[in-house]
Design a binder for these strands. Structure first.
Lengths: 152, 152
DNA sequence: ATTTATGCAAATCGTTTGCAAACCT
DNA sequence: AGGTTTGCAAACGATTTGCATAAAT
């Protein structure tokens, strides 16, 4: 349930730096702050949550920086039926492939993982299906929808 | 790739009728039209697509009716990173459990299924994980993100 | 007749954008 | 300097809502 970083904060910064550079973008103070917040929190955050965690950030800049960070492959945007988008570090940055538990009552989103064996089985099954359709898979998304512990 | 209805149009109408009734809602002309369009098309439709398919429908009424139909369990709303929500018939109405291929380029959404064996394996693995977290599963959602045939 | 659904137009609200000042190198 | 980023305020656009009319029972 913690972020369980398999990547050190320093490595993370360096990798974020690199990825931004490869898209001709700078790793500015505000962007650092965002990466730091997302890293520390270790779960998908909404805009209000980000602004609360970084009170000096201007909302418009956060939106703009999240777009940049997403294009650089540092951040991933998650859309649910909830009113807000959520943002988390790209999973190949944290080395932590996972999925989401989405509460249909309060909108909360948590991470979870499935056993490696199931994951790889699923992965190959999906690839077969996609190929048959001429679909080029970039990633998959597996969410569980239901009621979280708090919402009973 | 077709809708492959395992449920006849008549059965569908009757069931929609029933479900609406159980939430104290009527099966009005406009709602019939929506169900008919979704049934005929057999894939998730956006608001513009719905309005094009039913030129006499008022946009606000469509939005309102989709809410009602969703509450009655007749329709399911799908949110992607695309600008529009999409709507399809609830899968327990069509008897056709499926997932989605989401094109990250054009936003198009197609249905696909995975082998029953994989599906049930996944299902039990998910249930175990959820239980450990005190999470009550209502449904799962498995999307493949990538480039569709047309977008190469 | 009374309740509910409809359609138009206006309001909402998360997100995006224009622009001038601040920042970086 | 020369370019980018920032923050404020205004704009956008998908969805929602108020209200008067039309259906439905």
């Amino acid at each position: 349930m913690s972020a369980a970083p398999t990547v050190s904060p320093a490595d993370l910064e360096r990798e974020a730096q690199t990825r931004l550079g490869s898209v001709d973008q700078r790793f500015t103070r505000n962007r650092r702050t965002l990466v730091e917040i997302l890293s520390r929190t270790g779960r998908p955050l909404t805009m209000p949550e980000l602004l609360e965690a970084g009170p000096d950030l201007a909302q418009s800049s956060v939106y703009r920086n999240l777009v940049v960070l997403e294009q650089a492959g540092v951040v991933r945007r998650i859309v649910t039926n909830d009113e807000f988008s959520r943002y988390e570090l790209a999973e190949d940055l944290t080395g932590h492939h996972h999925h989401h538990l989405v509460c249909t009552s309060c909108g909360a989103v948590e991470d979870f993982t499935v056993p490696e064996k199931i994951e790889s089985l699923l992965d190959s099954a999906l690839r077969v299906t996609a190929d048959q359709r001429g679909f080029t898979v970039e990633s998959h998304r597996l969410d569980l929808l239901g009621r979280c512990d708090a919402c009973g």
